[in-house]
């Protein structure tokens, strides 16, 4: 490639590179520096060493509670969402009438799901006189206090995330469709039942996609903000007070940017460690065709 062409390539890439540097890399590094400072937005940051981290990890009860709620939220929503997305993908992989309509219909919530409007809609759906309670009463159940009861509030937020299973589903569907049909024919000739076929052929072949979805969904779940902010404001009794809410409140309600940055970096470290564990464990359960280890 001539020098001119290299320059042209860089020129084409420059909007992305500039965007990455200015809007991602710079704030990323700045927040790391700020996490070692006392900074209230209005004055110059003052270096305080590891004081923010020390307070966070040893003396902050709200952080401990928020972290445990966040971990519970991630460890429940991610497996449930993946299982549900896979279940629907398997159904939509059958040759049904109007299949394209159903595929689109199931994907739509993922486009809308994270928006403020949907969070507001959730608030009305699950309100004490909302449609969900009306439906429950219609089939003879007692209405449920979805937002006012600390044990139910997190469940309601979890449902909002589960509802947005479409993107994971589409990826599963693509993976299911790429499986060589001759493998199913061979299994059928050998007398394998539907469950055995699914477990011994389908599952191993889509493990790379399960792994991909696992990482993506885990990272997204750790960053959940809109749902609890709009619907429950972290309450009641901080039962839906996920770490991103705590970061937001520390930064923009208390103007403690240094402390908020420290929480953000602890969250980043947790996501990083869990991702590395997932990568490490993948060698034991992810099958790559043509990989000698497999």
């Amino acid at each position: 490639m001539s020098g001119d062409h290299r320059f042209l390539g860089l020129l084409y890439l420059s909007p992305y590179i500039i965007g990455l540097l200015v809007f991602t890399a710079l704030p990323f590094l700045a927040s790391f520096y700020l996490s070692f400072t006392d900074y209230n937005l209005m004055s110059t940051p003052t270096f305080v060493g590891i004081a923010n981290y020390a307070k966070l990890l040893t003396a902050d009860r709200t952080f401990k509670k928020s972290l445990s709620i966040t971990l519970f939220y991630v460890f429940t929503t991610v497996p449930l969402k993946l299982a549900f997305a896979l279940f629907i993908a398997v159904i939509l992989n059958y040759k049904l009438k109007f299949i394209n309509f159903f595929r689109t219909a199931f994907y739509v919530p993922s486009i809308l799901g994270g928006s403020i409007a949907i969070a507001v809609m959730w608030r009305y759906l699950f309100a004490d006189v909302g449609i969900v309670n009306m439906a429950l009463q219609g089939i003879g159940f007692e209405p449920v206090n979805w937002f006012g009861d600390p044990t139910n509030a997190l469940f309601t937020i979890t449902l909002l995330r589960l509802w947005q299973f479409g993107s994971a589903m589409v990826i599963f569907l693509a993976a299911l469709q790429s499986i060589d049909k001759s493998l199913y024919e061979a299994a059928s000739i050998d007398g394998a039942g539907k469950f055995a076929t699914f477990w011994h052929i389908t599952m191993p072949l889509i493990t790379p996609v399960i792994f991909f979805n696992l990482i993506m969904q885990m990272v997204q779940a750790f960053q959940e903000f809109n749902g609890p902010y709009i619907i429950t404001q972290g309450g009641p009794l901080k039962s839906t007070y996920l770490l991103p809410l705590y970061i937001y409140e520390a930064a923009f309600k208390r103007f403690d940017m240094g402390y908020a940055s420290a929480i953000a970096w602890v969250l980043f470290a947790i996501i990083m460690v869990l991702t590395l564990i997932a990568f490490w464990s993948s060698r034991h359960w992810v099958y790559y065709a043509g990989d000698k280890r497999s």
Binding site: R123, Y124, G148, Q233, G235
Partner: peptide, 10 residues
């Protein structure tokens, strides 16, 4: 009650 107000969606 606060619980009741929360149940209405705050």
């Amino acid at each position: 009650t606060q619980k009741s107000v929360a149940s209405e969606g705050n």
